[in-house]
């Protein structure tokens, strides 16, 4: 127990320190970067809840982010903007205008409900079949978001979403997500799920209901994703369905994989490292574009470097930077063995 509290304290301190640093620098850009980073962290922690404990790769995660973002947006766009932003909206929703703070929660819940309804039968599948169906689910969600014009304004940008997400709100939710992910991991459900990850047959033999536990993990992950998406929506205030597709999936997945999918520490540290690298590379890209060495715009360099980093990490350290033990456990073990690494 002691070591879990230590883990939470260290990671929580890192999160708060990042937020404080961004605010004390007093530069608007850094504040924006930090806010986006906390949103990513919520998503990465959500993916960790499912992937880390069940061992199944899920591509559908970002789809649920989209569900949360659109739900929250539709319910909170002010009356006078609705006619313009969503001309074909169903009459019943036309006069609904709730506080964004409430709709962020609703966004998470709707994403969780959608996940609960769609995913139960899929949880029977393992390995490649599970991955292909989750990829199929992402495509289905994306197609629906892109074409359900009445609610999403189709492939066009949806605008007029009230701004509500501040640096500290995002930071607070990230802390809550951290505690949630850790609590699930150490709960009975989380431990049984990890038993099934390590040996499906043995876990089933001791009576673990694998399908149900995976389902619970998946719903919880979708809740995180929905809340993260809604927070993001109220931060950028206009977005299109393209934001919730393969590019974002790749970014979130790279954060989790580089940090280490099996640990909460990995999720948090991976987000910090990848965000830092991503922003640094972006500014290099912008610098090259400004200096004009190349005849055309430089784009895609960031993704190339990230992809190489992912492949390198997976070949050298397949479990990521924190493959099995949380940081608190590592530190306690170190103290017990007199400073020698375990």
């Amino acid at each position: 127990m002691h070591r879990h509290i230590l883990t939470l304290a260290i990671l929580g301190a890192l999160i708060v320190a990042a937020a404080l640093l961004a605010q004390l620098m007093g530069i608007r850009l850094y504040e924006r970067i930090a806010t986006t980073m906390f949103v990513s962290m919520i998503l990465v922690l959500g993916l960790q809840v499912f992937m880390g404990n069940s061992g199944i790769l899920s591509f559908a995660h970002i789809g649920f982010m989209g569900v949360g973002a659109y739900t929250s947006a539709v319910l909170s766009i002010p009356d006078r903007m609705k006619g313009m932003a969503l001309p074909d909206l169903y009459p019943i929703l036309e006069n609904v205008q709730l506080s964004p703070y409430l709709t962020i929660l609703i966004g998470g819940l709707v994403a969780a409900l959608v996940a609960a309804a769609l995913s139960y039968p899929l949880m029977r599948l393992s390995d490649a079949a599970a991955v292909i169906t989750s990829f199929a689910l992402l495509v289905v969600l994306h197609t629906v978001l892109t074409h359900w014009s009445a609610v999403t304004n189709g492939p066009r940008t949806l605008f007029g979403i009230p701004e509500a997400t501040s640096l500290w709100l995002a930071c607070g939710v990230a802390l809550a997500a951290l505690i949630g992910a850790m609590a699930f991991k150490e709960s009975r459900a989380g431990q049984l799920l990890r038993a099934s990850r390590d040996d499906e047959v043995a876990a089933a033999a001791i009576g673990v209901n694998i399908v149900k536990l995976r389902w619970v993990g998946f719903i919880l992950a979708a809740l995180f994703a929905g809340i993260g998406g809604a927070l993001w929506g109220h931060f950028v205030t206009s977005f299109s369905p393209r934001a919730f597709y393969l590019k974002e999936t790749f970014l979130i997945l790279s954060m989790l994989v580089i940090g280490g999918a099996n640990t909460v520490t990995g999720a948090v540290i991976g987000t910090l490292i990848v965000t830092f690298a991503y922003e640094a590379l972006r500014s290099v890209e912008a610098g090259i574009n400004e200096a004009g060495f190349m005849s055309q715009q430089v784009i895609g360099l960031t993704e190339i470097v990230l992809a190489l980093a992912m492949i390198a990490v997976l070949s050298l350290r397949p479990g990521g930077l924190f493959p099995a033990r949380e940081i608190g456990t590592l530190l306690t073990l170190k103290r017990k063995t007199g400073g020698k690494s375990p």
């Binding site: 490649a128 790279s254 992809a307 997976l314």
Partner: peptide, 15 residues
């Protein structure tokens, strides 16, 4: 691991 290969091939595709 299976997951590792799926991710590396996804990364290679992005690359």
């Amino acid at each position: 691991s299976v997951t590792a290969v799926l991710i590396t091939s996804f990364a290679f595709s992005t690359l």
